[in-house]
Design a protein around this nucleic acid. Structure first.
Lengths: 245, 245
DNA sequence: GTAGTTCGATTGTCCGGACATATGCATTGA
DNA sequence: TCAATGCATATGTCCGGACAATCGAACTAC
């Protein structure tokens, strides 16, 4: 096999990261076929001129991603799963763009309102304190796909309407240095009310997919609370869950 | 603060794991309050008579779980998120039991059938090869909640009908040594067909929540493919997603 | 007073080694 | 023939140390 691996010690990117990226690329590319052994850590370390802990750190990161499996006494092998994409905190905008749908957004509401009890509880702010309220209609190919209603704590973001129409909320957050960390989601379904049906071009009572989400950044602070409704004929949630032992 | 920490070197459970569990318990219990610093690693290691790598391994596992945040030059602090439960590959049976609902199951179908193209693709077996087909109705408080249709590759499991009615599919898998690893899910919604409406006690056209799932074990082998429909008034999906950088 | 600098504190990365433990296979014994 | 034993192999755990990178605050200079 051999598999050309090398690290650049003069690079500022960590050695274990260089290695894990090369291994991941090899798996993605097919140089490392599913089920194949990876060769033992000691020898791999020797071949690359690295220490075993460094090699282990690289391998461990791929194990966490679900690409590799280690078995004591056996070795490390590539998992032969059909799906390789890791789970992600998905953004509707990115999802659509990745599917080549060229999403469009229409901002319906962009104001500051006092927080209701529900919003205050979700965002962890005082009731009746000011929060941003943004309501958007997301379209693909001119057809409405989803209605998005979001609440954002004040001071985090400059909620420019033009920017909201040209990109997604998550991207705007990342752009100002907020690193998203986790989200608590609830997905359900119900029949459309007359107002919802009107907005999305469906009939009253038609099945709608609903999602509520609170998103947290890496300090545990809630940065967004949203209530979304989707047309199930146009969108469904697709994701991969990894079991955490 | 001090926070009584100790490790038992004679125990077979790894030191880093003992430490991480104690820290997690302290966070859960409230001894470590959100936002509080954890004290530097060096001193913590010295106090416990451990090496720094061991302490770091314990801390890292909690960072991965989303309970702690490390910042260079600052320290490690407890994330002050409202929600602490990690994401999990949820089993409907366990979900219901955790909610104190005492789930009941009625097995409608339990046979072996040739795999359709769809099933074969999901499970990674040959088309028309034998697979188990299990159809179940899950009830809570005597009311139907969901209709579960599952396909399982042959030879994995002894699909005893009585056992299927008294516990969940995931538990049966774990019981025979299968370690679940990840799952690919699709969640959507649609109107109930007349047969579905009949089964679940809804009206035709009523909104239903649908889920399709392929579950993989730690070797990447598909162990189950399921198509489920839920009554949205009785059940919704609730879970936490962690962003993987 | 304000901006830039220095410095201490803390985590990030990396090394080299040691011993424990589980696995699979070959060998041995009944 | 088949089961028990032993051994090589590989990962799991743990140690102690070294230096780098980053953050925040105190300090200094203008």
């Amino acid at each position: 096999m051999s598999l050309e691996l090398s690290v650049d010690r003069s690079s500022p990117v960590p050695l274990y990261f260089q290695l894990s990226q090369q291994l991941e690329a090899a798996i993605e590319h097919g140089s490392l076929t599913p089920g194949s052994l990876l060769g033992n850590e000691i020898e791999l370390a020797a071949r690359l001129g690295l220490s075993r802990p460094t090699v282990r750190q690289a391998i461990q990161s791929l194990v966490d991603k679900g690409l590799l499996v280690r078995r004591r006494g056996v070795g490390t092998q590539v998992v032969h799963s059909q799906v390789k994409r890791p789970l992600e905190l998905s953004s509707l905008y990115d999802d659509l763009e990745a599917a080549g749908q060229r999403p469009a957004t229409k901002v319906l509401v962009n104001t500051v309102v006092p927080a209701t009890a529900e919003v205050a509880a979700a965002l962890g702010v005082a009731e009746d304190s000011d929060v941003h309220r943004v309501e958007r209609l997301r379209l693909a190919h001119g057809e409405p796909m989803a209605h998005l209603c979001n609440f954002i704590p004040p001071g985090l973001l400059d909620l420019d309407t033009a920017q909201l129409e040209s990109t997604g909320l998550y991207r705007m957050m990342r752009a100002v240095g907020i690193t998203l960390h986790s989200a608590r989601q609830t997905i359900g379904a119900r029949g459309a009310t007359s107002a919802e049906a009107d907005r999305l071009g469906e009939q009253e009572g038609a099945p709608l997919l609903t999602m509520q989400r609170v998103t947290f950044d890496d300090t545990g602070r809630a940065v967004e609370y949203g209530t979304h409704t989707y047309r199930p004929s146009r969108y469904s949630f697709e994701f991969q869950l990894l079991v955490r032992s």
